[in-house]
Simulated scan of single mutants.
Amino acid sequence: MFRRVLLALALPLFLAACGADNKWASDESVRAARYTSNEQPSISLITVIGVARGEGGHSALLINGSQQVIFDPAGSFEHPRAPERHDVLYGISPQMRNVYIDYHARDLPGERYYVTVDTVPVSREVADTAIRAAEGNGPVNKAFCVSGVSNVLRSTPGFQGAPGGFSPLRLRNWFLTVPGVSTAEYRDGDPRLVHGDLLKMSDGSLRTYDR
């Protein structure tokens, strides 16, 4: 009886965690936002890590191919200049990339996280394969960000050994074994990041401003 009560109480939480984001930006907004970088094509694993206990909080991919996008499975980031289709964010210029990182690198009561960006240079063809895999993955259920990232990586040449599961740190530890990887780390207030587009409120929410 007690077990059934626990299951009944847990069911709404489980269902809430399974809701996928079905955002679908218009063709016009995606075309208008498109950003192409002159930098070496690459695939970067973004990991959000708790400051206090070192636990993994989120995983995403920054992919620089024929255009630069972020695959943000089950993510909460929103910006009017980064249209989204099923967890793929378009218009990822260097400034928008920094805004995305700054959104996750926060030092607020009960929310203290830093961000690591691990980057592997690849060919344009490999990067575009990863973009297509992200676009074809579909929306990811809440709490399944690692699974979504792993699915995309396993569809990409050179990254097929990516582990699944639910641990951003386990995925990151594997990614760090990929040949040629380099790492950058960002904390709240990092001067390398863009500030001003998004203002972090005391409750952890964000208010957006146009420049």
Rank of each mutant, 00 (worst) to 15 (best):
S205R: 09
D107E: 15
P41C: 04
V5Q: 10
D87W: 02
V99H: 06
A143W: 15
S59E: 12
A82C: 15
N38K: 12
Q67Y: 07
M201D: 14
Y90W: 08
L45T: 05
I49T: 14
K142A: 09
T47I: 06
T47N: 00
A33Y: 06
G161C: 08
P109I: 08
P191A: 08
G138Y: 11
I131K: 03
D118A: 13
V48Q: 01
D27Q: 11
A60V: 13
R4F: 10
S182G: 07
M96N: 03
L171C: 05
R132P: 03
T116K: 14
V117C: 10
G19K: 08
R97G: 07
R81H: 15
S26D: 12
E78K: 14
A130R: 01
T129D: 04
K200A: 11
K23F: 10
T208L: 05
V152C: 01
E55D: 15
T36K: 06
P121E: 14
G50R: 11
R97T: 07
S150D: 06
P80M: 05
L45A: 04
P168D: 08
G136E: 12
F77N: 00
F159M: 06
L11T: 15
I131L: 04
V48D: 02
K200Y: 02
Q68M: 07
M201I: 00
V120Q: 12
S29T: 15
V115P: 02
D72F: 01
P12R: 07
A133Y: 00
A127G: 05
Y90G: 00
E111C: 02
Y114F: 15
Q160E: 15
D128G: 00
W174P: 02
V99T: 14
L171H: 09
L199C: 00
K200I: 06
S44M: 01
A60I: 05
N151G: 04
G158V: 14
S44A: 14
E111I: 07
T208W: 11
H104L: 06
M201G: 04
N137K: 08
P83E: 01
R192S: 04
E55L: 13
L198F: 04
E78A: 03
T129S: 11
R31P: 00
N64E: 14
Y103I: 00
P12C: 09
V140C: 08
L176M: 15
A10S: 03
V126G: 07
G158N: 12
A130K: 01
T36A: 12
G165H: 14
H79C: 00
H79A: 10
N151D: 11
D87H: 05
P73Q: 04
H86T: 02
G54F: 10
A25L: 09
V122N: 02
A32H: 08
R124W: 02
S42E: 10
P157W: 12
A10F: 13
V69S: 00
T208D: 04
L198N: 00
R106P: 03
T156F: 11
L11W: 05
S202C: 00
N98F: 07
K23M: 09
S147E: 13
S29W: 07
L171F: 05
A74Y: 02
I46L: 09
Y113P: 07
